[in-house]
Each structure stands twice: as C-alpha cells, then as structure tokens.
C-alpha cells in the first residue's frame, strides 16, 4: 500500500474541501477501497475518513418515501423494517450481495461507488483503460465471461458489480450530494453513472470533492417486488445476471412494470424497452419472452460472455413468472 495522509473529517464542508485536493479520496466502509489500495490499483495520497459525519439515519420523507444517509450500512438498510415492508426488493438485493461481515462495514454511498470486479482491472500486469487510461482493454479478447453486454465501448466492457444499485434503479432512487462549494444537487440514480466511451476511468458524474450525502427512495410504486440473482455459486458471489422487477397486474394483464438488470452493463440497466413490452401484456410466457427480447435487442457478446444474453432473457422470464405468480 502506498503511504497516504489520514484525516478524520468532523464536518461535511471540510470533508468536501479536503477531498477536492489532488489525489484525495473519501473513505467510508473501505471494503472495496482498502482492497484496491493494497493492490496499488487505488493510490490516494490523502484519505478523508467520513465515518464521523452525521449521515447514518434512515428517515421518512414528506412524500412518504425514505431518505437513507450515505453512511447507513448495507446490513442496517437491509434490516430496516420500513425497507423490508415497503421496499422488499431492496432488502433482497442487498442481502444477495457480499457476506454478513462485508455488509456490516459497507455503506450505502460506498456501495454505489464501488469499482468493477473485471479481472483485468485487478491484474496490474495487464492493460486496462479504466486503471491506466490509454493502455487498452484486455477483456475485449480476454476472459470476459463476467463482463458487460449492453452499452459498453471497445475501450472498456466492465460491468457494474452492485446488487443494491440495481434495486435502487428499479425504485427510481435519487442520489443527493454536496459539492466542495457547499452546493447541493439531486441526481436520478440512472444518470449517476457515465458510459465508458473513451474515458472508462471516469465512472460517475460526481465532481472532485462531491460527497454523496443520502439516497432518497420515492414511495414504492404499486405491484409486487422481486430481486433474482444468478451467480456461479449459491452465495457470496457477484451476479452473472440479476433482475429487479416490480409488477402490478390484474388477473390477466400487466398494469405496470419496472425492470432493471444487473451484470449486463456499466450501470444497473433499467429497461424501458422491457417495461414498454410488458405494459398491458398478458401474463404469459410469450409476453415475458417478448419483454426479454426487447430488453436485450442491442446486446453484444464478447465471446465468453455471450451466454449472458439468453441467460438474461430467461432470468427475466423466471422473475416475471415468480413476481406475478403466473406460468
């Protein structure tokens, strides 16, 4: 690990100012950042520890949603009874990720900002545009079975690893931030992440020193919620494909549907195409398959990960069948 200066921030304003220095970084749970620092993939010169900041509350919002402080641990969020009753999808998604130990340490803001687990991002002996801009992408023609198939570029095909963020994307969560000059803004979670394009090293729209303060969950939409994750082993593994679905229906037809995928893109993939195909559709296998075809119509495999495209369609079908209690 490279040496760094350690600072325990006592106020949001000073934390943002400190983190706006060159090569400075916020640290919250540290479960991803410390690992990357040991491997010298992350080499901050200055670490701003934000754990003492008052961002650990989950509170009701006037619109009957919840505001989740950035430092609320993944465990605390998944175990909160309001989340379990009103946003079961979010509890399920969080509990599908990592281990009990990691969820106790990992935070809401940190989970959103965790880095990809692309094996070449971790392998410092290989080119990686995300780790070393301009060096090339080893995954394009490498071992890419965990990599993305939607809306990535020839410069980077890394997938976003979060489960929590997939559920939050289906729930239309909003990310509230505070910038180094004290300005606050609200970012719809679907626009938090930047497409890799030519700069896969820049992953979000956040500015230097801009801190995630909270995540707001709007009131839950009507319908049943379900998160389904497909992975290489039964527990404690990143998703090959996951689906977050919220579906309202009557006895024969879908009234409204929300669908987001994990494991397919640089961000949680909300599929307006699948949602459009499902609106008013019958509760049949044919409808669910049509939604899957619509969702994956622009998908592109890179060899080892070609299987993700049919797997995503089938996972969507199975999730829709489960959440509607049909077929």
């Amino acid at each position: 690990m490279k040496p760094f200066r350690y600072e325990k921030a006592s106020a949001i304003a000073s934390a943002c100012t400190s983190a706006a220095q060159p090569a400075a970084k916020f640290i919250a749970g540290g479960t991803n950042l410390i690992d990357l620092m040991k491997l010298q993939i992350e080499t901050p010169a200055h670490l701003v520890d934000i754990n003492a900041l008052p961002l650990r509350e989950i509170e009701e919002t006037p619109e009957h949603g919840l505001r989740v402080g950035a430092l609320v641990s993944n465990s605390a969020l998944a175990a909160d009874m309001r989340v379990r009753q009103r946003y079961p999808l979010l509890s399920q998604a969080i509990l599908a990720g990592a281990s009990g130990q990691l969820r106790n340490k990992a935070t809401t803001g940190g989970n959103l900002l965790q880095r990809t687990r692309c094996p070449y991002f971790y392998d410092t002996t290989k080119p990686c545009n995300k780790r070393e801009p301009g060096s090339g992408c080893s995954a394009l023609r490498g071992l890419n079975r965990m990599n993305a198939v939607l809306d990535v570029s020839d410069n980077c095909i890394a997938a976003h690893p979060s489960d929590m963020a997939v559920a939050m994307t289906a729930l239309d969560a909003r990310v509230e931030t505070v910038a180094r000059d004290g300005a606050t803004r609200t970012i719809p979670i679907d626009t938090l992440y930047r497409a890799p394009g030519d700069t896969p090293n820049i992953e979000t729209v956040l500015a230097l020193g801009e801190l995630i303060r909270s995540v707001v969950l709007p009131p839950p939409p009507p319908g049943r919620q379900l998160y389904r994750k497909v992975r290489d082993r039964a527990s404690y593994a990143f998703a090959l494909v996951s689906v977050a679905a919220i579906v309202a229906h009557d006895s024969n037809h879908v009234r409204s549907a929300r669908v987001a995928f994990g494991g397919l893109s640089y961000k949680p993939w909300r599929s307006a195409d699948a949602e459009g195909a499902l609106s008013g559709a019958t509760l049949t296998r044919a409808s669910y398959d049509a939604a899957g075809t619509a969702a994956l119509k622009n998908a592109h495999g890179y060899g080892h990960n070609d299987f993700k495209i049919p797997l995503a369609r089938r996972t969507l079908r199975a999730t829709l069948a489960d959440v509607t209690g049909s077929i």
Partner: peptide, 11 residues
C-alpha cells in the same frame, strides 16, 4: 462482525 483485514486500525 467485520473482516479486520479490510479495516484500517486508525478508522
């Protein structure tokens, strides 16, 4: 419970 390998003592 936490993984003490992924925690800085100073924190």
């Amino acid at each position: 419970r936490i993984n003490s390998c992924l925690a800085l003592a100073a924190m």
